[in-house]
Structure formats: C-alpha cells, structure tokens
Simulated scan of single mutants.
Amino acid sequence: MNGNDKSGPATVAELAEQLRRFADERDWQRFHTPKNLAMALAGEVGELLAELQWLTPDESVRLMADAELSGRIRAEIGDIMIYLTRLADLLGIDLLSAADDKLAEAARRYPADAVRGSAAKAARA
C-alpha cells in the first residue's frame, strides 16, 4: 500500500478504496472472489493463532511487550484486516454497520445485569 508512509487510510472506506486500487494495479480482481478472500482470511487467522498457540494466558496478555513477537502479531492482524476489508467491500457490506448490528444483538441477548462475570453462552434467541 503506502510502503513506509505511516499516514495511511483514516477510515475503513478509505482502506477499502486503497485495497481496490492495489488489486486493480496488479490485475488481481479476478482472484478476489468471496471464496478466495474468505479462505485467505481464515489462513491469516490461523497464522495469528499459531503465534499465540503455546503461550500461557499470562504470556498472551503481555505479548506486546516483546518487540519481536509484537511485530509478528501486528503483521498478522494487518493481514486479517486487509482480507476482511477486501471481502466486505466486494460483498457490499459496511464493516462498521455490521459490527454495530452484531453488538446491538449481543447486548439484547446478553444483558449486562444478567451475564456480568460469566463466560457462559446464552441460549440462541
């Protein structure tokens, strides 16, 4: 994208546009099908999991204090964001709206006063 330019996109819409241009410049649109992007996204999530796999819970909380590991984690999360944004853009899904809808649904299903301090899942409503 911008190489070493740290200014980068300020919004998800700007990132989506930047990713569209990136794919267009390389003639990669034909490879960016929903199936391929979802598979690439799953692969990147797997790479993030591999970085965390053998850490203790305590180590996983402190992982960003380790310069080498934090760089790898940041890179994997960047890859995940790129593929997720590209997939949502291709499907015409507004990521922030979709997340807002899911948060509203979770608030309805898991009222704070009923679930505070519990990791148990509520019955599907």
Rank of each mutant, 00 (worst) to 15 (best):
L52W: 07
L52Q: 06
Q53P: 00
Q53H: 08
Q53W: 07
L55Q: 02
T56H: 07
T56K: 04
T56Y: 01
P57S: 03
P57T: 08
E59D: 15
V61Q: 05
R62E: 15
L63H: 09
M64H: 06
M64C: 04
A65I: 00
A65C: 01
D66E: 09
D66L: 05
A67D: 12
A67M: 09
L69G: 00
L69N: 06
S70Y: 03
S70M: 02
S70P: 03
S70C: 09
G71K: 15
G71R: 10
I73C: 11
I73K: 04
A75N: 14
E76W: 04
G78N: 11
G78V: 09
D79A: 08
M81F: 07
I82H: 09
Y83M: 14
L84N: 05
L84Y: 06
T85S: 11
T85N: 07
T85M: 08
R86K: 03
L87N: 09
A88M: 13
D89A: 13
D89V: 08
L90K: 14
L91D: 07
L91V: 05
L91P: 03
G92Y: 01
D94V: 03
L96Y: 12
S97A: 13
S97W: 00
A98E: 14
D101S: 05
K102R: 14
K102G: 12
A104E: 13
A104I: 06
A104L: 13
E105W: 09
A106E: 11
R108E: 10
R108Y: 02
R109N: 10
D113P: 00
A114I: 02
V115E: 07
R116L: 08
R116K: 05
R116A: 11
R116M: 06
R116D: 04
G117E: 11
A119G: 11
A120C: 08
A122V: 11
A123M: 12
